[in-house]
Write a protein that binds this DNA or RNA. Structure first.
Length: 434
DNA sequence: TCTGGGGTCCTAGGACCC
DNA sequence: TCTGGGGTCCTAGGACCC
């Protein structure tokens, strides 16, 4: 056998945290171990993470809190989401996993792909070491799926989660085609990455019921009847890479900040406060990725769930030039808000979306930009950077734009009745030892 | 009383141009 | 009666993801 024929087979791992948000809460409150725990979305609206014990109580993903709160009597513990904590735990977990391979793609807050191609050891050995190290160093239980493509790695991860005998690691990378089809022949097609709620019933109706069925399906037919995306998924299921690898997270092309209100809001002034806060948050994210935006979209809507007068509208406000200045974005957002606001409606939600986002032009501020004193703009940029730094250090409420100032009991603020302390991210909440 | 927030990609169709 | 065709750009909407 020639040396060039000995290229190692592709081996991609997908590692993710089990019930990640719940696991983060358990790290800080070990007394929650073994108990049914859920994490609630913003406004304590619905369950967005469940431990195995909570799933065993029959709580589905997305269950509205009001419909399951009676389970507290049976020991269910509900915790308001604390995304600062989860982001912090995610950073730690990703750093530990990244030690195992130079090629890591962070896919979401709780999962990443890792290229294991050519590394010494079997998939099971490497996967087991990753699980042990993350559990010991970060405290988060994980599962590891390994396959020749991203889609197969996701599928393997799904198997690792659902089959206890695999002990959290499933390696599909060594199988030949027949073995692969055998391994995935019981996986419902709806569990395949890229097949969602709309596609699954349609596929089932045409006889494609399992992952193996999809792998065997005619590619041209898939493309013709559905989409190129689904045809790619089918290729990936056969071990042919069709989805690329992204080492660095690409900058966002749109940036949103949006919230449902704690209680319905009728008052324009309160909407202005909310939209001001959302805009300054979005602007902060924009500056973090060193981008400018040239379109601001703002929307308001009444509740989807309540009967009564309904109103939803959005305004798209183009800017003269791309910018990352909160004050400029704010002016546009508030103008947009006033153009869509109608008195007499119980608004339940508002949002701000920055569009046409592109990298900030390199180099110093040009003299003619903004038609303003360039020195003023430079100083203003510096002030913006200082605000971002202070907010990062001392919590995001430290410095706010004046128009976002509000009463501590403003109606639009989120409900968070079950919040746990932010041990790792807020000075005031740091655990005191000794 | 009470139902999250933040993204991506693809496609179809219209406007416009030559 | 005949009344093109191809290309690009943009937008809205639908599907998916976590």
């Amino acid at each position: 056998m020639g040396a060039q024929a000995h290229r190692p087979p592709p081996r991609i791992a997908l590692i993710d945290g089990n019930s990640f948000y719940c696991a983060c809460e358990r790290v800080l409150r070990p007394s929650l171990e073994g108990k049914p725990v859920i994490v609630l979305s913003n406004n304590d609206g619905c369950a967005i993470a469940r431990t195995a014990e909570a799933k065993a109580m029959g709580i589905p993903m997305g269950a509205p809190w009001f419909s399951i709160r009676h389970l507290q009597a049976r020991g269910l513990v509900a915790i308001s989401a604390n995304f600062a904590l989860y982001g912090d735990m995610s950073d730690r977990m990703m750093r530990v996993i990244g030690q195992f391979s130079p090629a890591q793609e962070i896919y979401s807050i709780d999962e990443c792909f890792l290229d294991l191609t050519g590394l010494p050891g079997t998939g099971r050995e490497i996967g087991t070491r990753i699980r042990q190290r993350v559990l010991r160093w970060v405290g988060i239980p994980t599962c590891v799926g390994i396959g020749a493509t991203k889609t197969l790695a996701k599928l393997a991860n799904h198997l690792a989660k659902s089959l206890p005998r695999l002990q959290g690691v499933c390696d599909l990378s060594g199988l030949n085609h027949a073995g692969l089809l055998r391994a995935i022949r019981h996986v419902p097609v709806g569990d395949v990455w890229g097949v969602g709620r709309r596609l699954a019933p349609s596929l089932e109706a045409s006889g494609i019921r399992t992952a193996a069925d999809l792998a065997r399906a005619d590619r041209h037919e898939l493309r013709r009847r559905y989409s190129i995306v689904l045809a790619k998924t089918a290729r990936e299921l056969c071990g042919e890479p069709a989805i690329g690898w992204e080492d660095a997270p690409s900058p966002k092309q749109q940036i949103m900040s949006t919230r449902s209100f704690g209680r319905p809001v009728r008052d324009l002034t309160e909407l202005e406060q909310a939209v001001s806060l959302f805009t300054s948050r979005a602007a902060e994210k924009l500056r973090q990725q060193h981008s400018h935006a040239s379109v601001v979209q703002v929307y308001i809507r009444t509740s989807r769930f309540r009967t009564g007068p309904w109103h939803a509208d959005n305004a798209v406000v183009p800017l003269d030039r791309p910018t990352d200045h909160t004050s400029v974005l704010l002016k546009a957002a508030l103008a947009g808000l006033r153009s869509v606001f109608r008195p007499g409606f119980d608004y339940a939600k508002a949002g701000v979306c920055l569009l046409d986002v592109r990298p900030a032009a390199a180099g110093p501020v040009q003299g003619e930009l903004f038609g303003q004193d360039p020195e003023y703009m430079v100083r203003s940029s510096r002030a913006m950077a200082v605000v971002d730094q202070l907010n990062q250090r001392f919590g995001s409420r430290m410095i706010q734009v004046a128009s976002a100032l509000h009463e501590p009991d403003a109606r639009w603020l989120m409900r968070q009745a079950h919040r746990s302390p932010s041990y790792t991210t807020q000075w005031g909440d740091v655990v005191k030892v000794g």
